[in-house]
Design a protein around this nucleic acid. Structure first.
Lengths: 234, 234
DNA sequence: CGTTTAATTGACCAGTATCAACAGGAGTGG
DNA sequence: CCACTCCTGTTGATACTGGTCAATTAAACG
């Protein structure tokens, strides 16, 4: 059997950030006050570089302050699965074990807050509020992951893309426009498709008047209801 | 587009368990001592019945004591995704929101320990050890879920089934025999395939001498290494 | 044993992947 | 400012994995 498998791409990105400093109070407050405030340091990551790689020691947890990141996993032969796209406010790098099970890379240049694990563990052990907060964050991610299992396991290409666009729309400041910061390759690897299928499905949605595509990364939602129908969820 | 979609099946199972009692100490200790011991009540569930349904109020968390359960989600048109199979020691029903995002059903008759949420929340708020323990459990599940994203998004039918068998083997008392307690339909919905493809892939593995199938639910692993090769992971 | 349900197998088809060619921008250097 | 290149995305032709429909066998149950 063994599919010959598509567009491998994905060179392992070079390492590390440029700037590390202590988090300022006004930044900490940006996404709502939080039991975790004041425990992190800020670091910025250039587009295309990784915050950590698959297999690296999991010595810290992170939160996105600005920009877009992705977490992804590679199979030995190069096939890639994007686990998640991360936006301002999202946490990542949370793991039980000693090493990261997936890489985290910047899609755009980004700034993230880094929480050293020993410190966070100590605080969580002392303050149940922090521990509860971490649990909430993790449970939310788990819920999202389960939804994506259904998407990957049971939805068609069109349903996948419609679901993806609605998801991006939810995180967009503008209720009818989605600015895609990620490439078609990223989208394909997120949805378990090839770039060609993603591209064709975009074209189909455009042809059917559901969206407009002034440019490859700018999507105008012309018919949200149609998109919801197509998502297979409702 | 819209696939015509396969084997719908899956009638919504009737409700509720038979027996509810207070957990005995020796039972609580069964899977290793735990910060959560003594907080739950035991209930048994008949095969095929559900512990809770999708959309039910999430008023408790659960842990499997014996038997096998599954969590699953339905799309409106009946397509189903099995999120996970649950064995002795596994937790389930953990959610942030007010209602369950997926149903939990017994595959075999089973007994589960039920932790009322208000009570557990109170304990977690007071005791950081409990909160940390819950966090660990949830992070472990999250890691598993991320692995399954890669399986569903990027693996072939054969790789999916090989991975599944290895996973079941890890939980089997016998290192070369897997006792499948779930139906082909369950396996198909777990792997994002149809029962026909699952069946054909079993037959192919058998034909290639990787496994033997004395009966549909008894799998003998003849060549574990081959199975690992085929899993796509190594 | 007959009846029902689950699993297997076969024939065929559809949805995506693959392979390949082409188009559109973004830099770069003359 | 224009050619040239590079890279990403789009489109087309074709192949193939896995889905669909249907018939058969095997296992479970009364």
């Amino acid at each position: 059997m063994v599919m010959k498998m598509q567009n491998l791409a994905v060179a392992r990105a070079p390492k590390f950030p440029s700037f590390v400093g202590t988090i300022a109070p006004e930044q900490a407050a940006k996404h709502g006050s939080d039991a975790l405030d004041m425990l992190g340091t800020v670091m910025s990551v250039r587009a295309g570089t990784e915050v950590y790689g698959e297999g690296d020691d999991a010595i810290a947890w992170y939160r996105v302050q600005s920009g877009v990141l992705r977490t992804c996993k590679l199979l030995p032969d190069g096939r890639r699965q994007v686990e998640d796209f991360l936006f301002a406010g999202d946490f990542f790098g949370l793991e039980v074990g000693g090493e990261h099970n997936f890489a985290a890379e910047a899609v755009t240049s980004a700034s993230v807050i880094r929480y050293a694990r020993p410190r966070l563990n100590a605080v969580a052990a002392a303050d149940a509020r922090v521990a509860t907060r971490l649990l909430d964050v993790t449970l939310t991610q788990l819920g999202k992951a389960y939804n994506r299992l259904t998407l990957l396991g049971r939805k068609t290409a069109e349903e996948k893309l419609a679901t993806f666009l609605l998801e991006m729309l939810d995180r967009s400041p503008n209720p009818t426009v989605v600015d895609l910061s990620m490439s078609r390759t990223d989208i394909a690897d997120y949805l378990g498709l090839t770039i060609e299928t993603v591209s064709r499905t975009f074209s189909a949605l455009k042809h059917d008047g559901v969206i407009a595509l002034p440019s490859a990364q700018h999507v105008v939602i012309l018919d949200r209801e149609a998109l919801e129908e197509l998502s297979g969820d409702e």
